[in-house]
C-alpha cells in the first residue's frame, strides 16, 4: 500500500460545501485561538498568500491547529497542516477537525522509499497551497528542540521557490501535554520569523541546523 494521504482536495467538494466548510473552519479557528489564548507575533515577516512552508517546534497535538488558526483567514484558507494520521483518524471528532482544518494526514508507520512524504506533500500543495510541518517528527517532552528530520531539506531542494518560514510555539505543551486529552486554558504565544531559503550548495546538515536555530532564536525575541 502506498503512503496514504487524506483525499480532501477541494476539487472533490460538492458545490454547496465550501461556504459551510468556511464557516465551520472559521469557528474552529476562533475556538482554537480562545482555548489556547494564543497571541501572535510577526517578526520581519508579513502574512501573505505566496506559497510557504511554515515549520515549527512540536510540543503538543494542538500545535498544528493553533498555528493554522494564528494565520489571517485568507491565508488560512490556502494553508494545510501536515499531521499524524494515527492521531487525527481516531474518533469522529478528530476526523471532523482534521477535515475542517484541511490537514494532510500522513501515516508515519507506512513510509516507503519510492513514496516519500515529501513527494506526497508536493503533490498535494501543487502551485496553490502553503504547508505547515513539524520537522522534529514527534512531539518532544523536553524544552529543547530536537534535531530536524531531513524532509524540510528535500522539500526546499525540490521546490526552491517556496518561502520557508520559521515559527516558534510557546507554552502549548502546558495547554495540552503529551498523553492528556483535556486542555487547560493557559496562554500561549506563536511567533512567525523572517523567511529563509536553501542556499546554493548548502549541505543537508548545515541547512537543518540553520533552520532549527531560526526557530530557536524566535523564542527570545
Amino acid at each position: 500500500m502506498p503512503l496514504t494521504l487524506e483525499a480532501t482536495s477541494p476539487s472533490l467538494q460538492l458545490p454547496w460545501e465550501p461556504s459551510s466548510r468556511k464557516m465551520t473552519s472559521t469557528l474552529l479557528a476562533i475556538v482554537a485561538r480562545i482555548l489556547s489564548g494564543a497571541s501572535v507575533r510577526w517578526i520581519d515577516c508579513q502574512p501573505d498568500t505566496v506559497q510557504r512552508v511554515y515549520f515549527a517546534n512540536h510540543t503538543s497535538h494542538l500545535d498544528s491547529i493553533v498555528l493554522w488558526a494564528s494565520l489571517p483567514s485568507h491565508v488560512r484558507a490556502l494553508t494545510r497542516p501536515v499531521a499524524a494520521k494515527e492521531y487525527w483518524e481516531k474518533g469522529a471528532v478528530r476526523r471532523f477537525m482534521a477535515r475542517t482544518f484541511n490537514a494532510m494526514l500522513i501515516d508515519r508507520k507506512d513510509i516507503k522509499v519510492h513514496q516519500s512524504p515529501v513527494d506526497m506533500i508536493l503533490g498535494q500543495i501543487g502551485q496553490k497551497y502553503s504547508v505547515i510541518l513539524f520537522p522534529e517528527g514527534s512531539r518532544n517532552a523536553e524544552e529543547q528542540i530536537q534535531t530536524f528530520k531531513s524532509g524540510l531539506y528535500y522539500l526546499a531542494k525540490k521546490r526552491p521557490d517556496l518561502e520557508l518560514v520559521p515559527v516558534h510555539i510557546e507554552n502549548l505543551n502546558r495547554v495540552l501535554p503529551r498523553g492528556e486529552f483535556l486542555p487547560v486554558p493557559l496562554l500561549s504565544l506563536v511567533t512567525f520569523g523572517p523567511p529563509m531559503y536553501l542556499e546554493q550548495g548548502e549541505a543537508k546538515n548545515d541547512f537543518l541546523t540553520r533552520a532549527r536555530d531560526a526557530v530557536k532564536r524566535l523564542k527570545d525575541l
Binding site: 489564548g37 502546558r174 501535554p177 492528556e180 486554558p185 496562554l187
Partner: peptide
C-alpha cells in the same frame, strides 16, 4: 478572574503532574 488566573498560572512554572489539578481549578 478566569483571564487573570490564566496569566498567573502561565507565568508560574508547573509540571506535567499538575495538569489534571489545573483542569479542576479552571
Amino acid at each position: 478572574s478566569f483571564w487573570a488566573l490564566r496569566e498567573f498560572i502561565t507565568l508560574t512554572p508547573t509540571r506535567l503532574g499538575d495538569h489534571r489539578a489545573l483542569f479542576w481549578v479552571f
